[in-house]
């Protein structure tokens, strides 16, 4: 299976909000497989969102199993129409993006989130995520709203510790 071409900043499509998904047909399943393949092929990528390959629909991959150091996670997730419903705590962490090559910067994200979505077959699902996985999900949901981590950069010297030690 071929990887899809990744759009790079400042492509306008990366700044565009995405439409909800309402059909889960074979064509959609094929696109999701290609998106997963594209994420796997990205150097060090732990997630990807459909608008990064030019498809303006609310679909993303969150895969904290690919973190360099093992972290709490819910496995390889395909999230359709994801929605973050609760946020708790905050932490500074470093982020990069397949659509912004060769740059990483610091971003403040919620330490813990509640997220509801649908799986690739349209079945409702929900997750409580924390730390690295929560950060990936927030980064990807931002993509679906046309927001890049560049829009959320904080001082490169920021060093905010987690509010509640784990």
């Amino acid at each position: 299976m071929a990887s899809l071409e990744i759009l790079t900043y400042p492509d306008e499509r990366l700044k565009t909000g995405c439409e909800p998904v309402d059909t889960f047909n074979p064509e959609m399943q094929s696109f999701i497989d290609h998106l997963i393949e594209t994420c796997s092929g990205g150097p060090g990528a732990v997630g990807i969102a459909a608008p990064q390959v030019g498809v303006l629909q609310r679909i993303c991959i969150v895969d904290a199993t690919r973190a360099r150091r093992p972290v709490d996670n819910h496995g390889h997730l395909v999230l359709i129409n994801p929605e973050i419903t609760a946020w708790d705590g905050f932490a500074v962490g470093r982020e990069g993006c397949l659509s912004v090559p060769d740059y990483t910067g610091k971003v403040i994200r919620a330490e813990k989130i509640e997220l509801k979505a649908q799986d690739r077959n349209g079945k409702p699902c929900s997750f409580t995520m924390s730390g690295f996985e929560a950060r990936i999900a927030q980064h990807e949901v931002d993509h679906l709203d046309g927001v890049l981590f560049l829009d959320r950069l904080v001082s490169r010297h920021a060093d905010l510790k987690r509010r509640t030690p784990t």
Partner: peptide, 8 residues
């Protein structure tokens, strides 16, 4: 503090 980078 170990640092890991979210690339997504």
């Amino acid at each position: 503090t170990p640092l890991d980078t979210v690339r997504g």
